[in-house]
Design a protein around this nucleic acid. Structure first.
Lengths: 138, 138
DNA sequence: ATACCCTGTAATTATAATAGTTACAGGTGG
DNA sequence: CCACCTGTAACTATTATAATTACAGGGTAT
């Protein structure tokens, strides 16, 4: 199971996007997510490093660097998840076994294809579509 | 990152499928994977419970219950990964916050769609295609 | 029947990731 | 200057994973 960082980061961005004229302190966001403010500040740091938001040390409030429609869940995923391989593959299979010899390469290919499909879908969902689902019931 | 169980399980099934007339003991498979035989026997247990293989207590060797072309990586994934949600979502967001109130449902939807894309791809890769890539260079 | 190799599984351990928390240095702005 | 904030290091608790030891009991050849 993938950690909650992606989910919390989307929550954070949705909050910021939904109140573009308010400066939300990390304590406020933490109360909405129901966690510790430091957890929020850590995630804000990763989102900032990824170029998705801007913040000012000492001053409450973060703002998106681009419109919500230009921030995909894939952007968020990559911002808070350093690993580029979704599936782990065991190290050092026996190189003298015909299966062990090539399995890593073959699995990397197979898993990579599947991961690409996941990422394609994640890139089609944005903070805007999340906001839409949050606020516009249909 | 998803654990190595999926990768090891595919390795195991590829070995079994590639030597259908040999009774491979767990020690042999463990030597190819480069891990402990108990790790292999545990995975064989999960694959058996999922109906993908047959084994006999006390007797070496496992056999596939269906042709390699009928065992997809999704079957393997589901056999060794009990969780049905790929992405974790934080519990107890603040129900008094308009974002917190609905975020879980919205995220479950968004992540579920992405997971479905991943699974669709995984279901199109089989032990047979893995064998093909392992042994038939092109 | 017995000796040997095997499976199935429980129990234990080591390691690593995650999330929560405390603490504090330093920026911001009334 | 003072209250409030961010950024970040450090520590802790919890959990998942994988490796390992141990052993009860099945299978089979002799």
């Amino acid at each position: 199971m993938i950690n909650t960082r992606v989910a919390v980061a989307v929550h954070i961005l949705a909050l910021i996007a939904s109140k573009p004229h308010e400066d939300l302190p990390s304590d406020y966001i933490a109360a909405s997510v129901n966690t510790n403010p430091v957890v929020i500040r850590r995630l804000l740091g990763m989102l900032k490093k990824a170029g998705l938001i801007q913040t000012t040390a000492g001053k409450a409030g973060a703002s998106l660097t681009r419109p919500p429609s230009d921030i995909s869940l894939l952007d968020v995923f990559r911002a808070v998840e350093p690993k580029d391989h979704l599936f782990a593959v065991h190290d050092n299979p026996n190189p003298h076994c015909p299966v062990g010899k090539s399995i890593r390469h073959v699995l990397d290919d197979a898993f990579g294809t599947a991961q690409a499909a996941l990422e394609r879908k994640l890139s089609s969902e944005t903070i805007e579509t999340i906001l839409h689902h949050l606020f516009e019931e249909e």
